[in-house]
Design a protein around this nucleic acid. Structure first.
Length: 471
RNA sequence: GGCCCCAUCGUCUAACGGUUAGGACGCCAGCCUCUCACGUUGGUAGUCCGGGUUCGAAUCCCGGUGGGGUCACCA
């Protein structure tokens, strides 16, 4: 695709983990840019010196990388751009579009509460708006002198035309008393300076938009197009947060979710394409459009994510799942060094039908890597003296099966059991307990093949010994 | 409370103003089967309410109600 003039950005503030809502914002911007050959910019909004941390920047970068959401410019950091903001603030001051405000936080707090109580808009009184130069001195903030006369129209790409009355607009603080610039000023300056053409962000920013438009106008910059996407809600229908359990990408990652599934899930919130549920990134790039994006908020449904993840466990090539499984096997204490990749792939192949996450897969894979204790009730129920003899004969047969693969094992054992007048059902559970230590596992013969002849026979013998020792 | 946004099964979502209101997750049941899963078949369940416009409204308009967001020297 030919490069276009489209420039979008993801602008998180590094005050914590990369939130799932943030991921969705990043994702939409990324798709938008990639679909049109535009430029994706990453900008760290760290002007709040007290809450921003370098650690959080690391989390954001890691999260985006894990998801495969790359960027073309940045990461820029707003703390490195204070000169630029100050120039703009000074310009507004010089043009009498901003003023010094000497009100203290305490005073402001009081009048805000009064306004709330009275039921009017909680906006600044304008007390310092018309102070003459030198009338007061000392610690102060800078406020933007918000126009009060007309209306602001936001032609939102998702919501359509939204109107705000300017008499609702507050004189917002654009420079703190410590000299640092605030959000509404820095976004505008940066988006203008970086040539951002489309601002796609959460609906929680919609009410900020008219203030920002006033700033664009005061600064005589072109206003970009806006698109405000509906929010993701928790089960209680409030904005999704840590309160609701997992809300950070990192948590989903460590719970064993695949980025493919997470992206698939997120993109289906507020958007659909016919009756399709599974979308690869490639398909999304082909099919998704902001125009089709729904306006109503969506509740985060963990069950559906889980189902999707189960689907993706089977779609992602097993060699890749094997590779991604490694850290989880390590965490389970099952490996210290990487197993042979081909073998591990076969392990994955037996497990992927029944593991919804990598964590679950690693957990279920335990018996492939080491000896475990039998599930007490299962051993009690199935490893009985009556079955001992049959298990012994099975062992004898297994020791001669050639080639040692699941098809051959299956047909030979089945054939033999028929001759014995027995059914596979009679032997399956005891053998399963012997080989996997539990009552639910991948197919018996697949397990044997992956375990290998030697281990299979060892475990059968061990089970028979256990039977002899019971009572 | 002011301002703004939103409104189809429990949840995610389809439905040029004309459909028995479709699909998916979940849940329930059957089938498949060496277990558990996977898969498959069927079932459960929805247009927030009230007015209007129209031959005809989930769909358009208005009003309620409900939910959400936002009102910081946070972003």
């Amino acid at each position: 695709m030919a490069p276009s003039d489209i420039r979008v950005r993801f602008a998180p503030s590094p005050t914590g983990f990369l939130h799932i809502g943030g991921v969705r914002t990043a994702l939409y911007n990324w798709i938008f840019a990639r679909q049109r050959g535009g430029t994706m910019i990453l900008r760290i909004e760290d002007t709040d010196l007290t809450r921003s941390t370098d650690e959080a920047i690391g989390w954001i970068l890691d999260g985006l990388t894990w998801l495969g959401l790359d960027w073309d410019e940045g990461p820029y950091r707003q703390t490195e751009r204070f000169d630029l903001y100050n120039e703009h603030i000074d310009r507004l001051l010089a043009q009498n579009k901003a003023y010094r405000c000497y009100c203290t936080p305490g005073e402001l707090e009081v009048s805000r509460k009064e306004a709330m109580l009275k039921g009017t808009a909680a906006k600044y009184s304008g007390k310092c708006r018309n102070l003459k130069d030198g009338e007061r001195n000392g610690e102060h903030t800078i406020r933007f002198k918000a126009p009060q006369e007309g209306q602001i129209f936001v032609d939102d790409m998702i919501r359509g035309m939204v109107m705000f009355d300017e008499d609702q607009m507050d004189d917002l603080i654009i420079r703190r008393s410590d000299g640092s610039p605030t959000y509404n000023l820095t976004v505008v300056v940066d988006d203008a300076d970086m040539g951002i053409t489309h601002v796609i962000r959460g609906e929680d920013h919609l009410s900020n938009t008219p203030r920002q438009i006033q700033l664009y106008q005061a600064l005589e910059y072109d206003v970009p197009r806006f698109g405000h996407m509906s929010l993701i809600l928790g089960p209680d229908r409030e904005k999704l947060s840590k309160r609701h359990g997992a809300a950070a990408v990192d948590e989903f990652r460590s719970m064993g979710y695949l980025p493919e599934a997470l992206i698939n899930y997120l993109v289906r919130l507020g958007w659909s394409h016919e009756d399709q549920e599974i979308f690869s990134v490639e398909e999304v790039l082909k099919l998704w459009s902001l125009d089709d994006q729904g306006k109503s908020p969506s509740v985060f449904d963990h069950d559906k994510l889980q189902w999707l993840n189960g689907q993706w466990m089977k779609i992602v090539p097993p060699e890749q799942i094997a590779r991604r499984l490694l850290p989880f096997l390590e965490k389970e204490g099952l490996i210290t060094m990487s197993p042979e990749p081909g073998w591990l792939t076969k392990v994955v192949l037996t497990l992927r039908e029944r593991a919804v996450t990598l964590v679950e897969m690693a957990h279920r894979a335990g018996f492939y890597f080491k000896e475990l204790d039998y599930e007490p009730e299962s051993a009690e129920k199935f490893l009985t003296p009556e079955i001992n003899h049959l298990m012994g004969k099975a062992g004898a047969l297994i020791s001669t099966v050639e080639p040692f693969d699941h098809e051959t094992l299956h047909s030979e054992i089945r054939g033999w059991l028929e001759e014995e007048g027995r059914k596979l059902k009679d032997l399956a559970q005891p053998l399963r307990i012997a080989l996997t230590y539990r009552k639910d596992s991948p197919g018996l013969f697949e397990v044997m093949e992956v375990l290998g002849r030697e281990t299979t026979l060892e475990r059968i013998e061990k089970a028979r010994e256990w039977i002899r020792n019971r009572v």
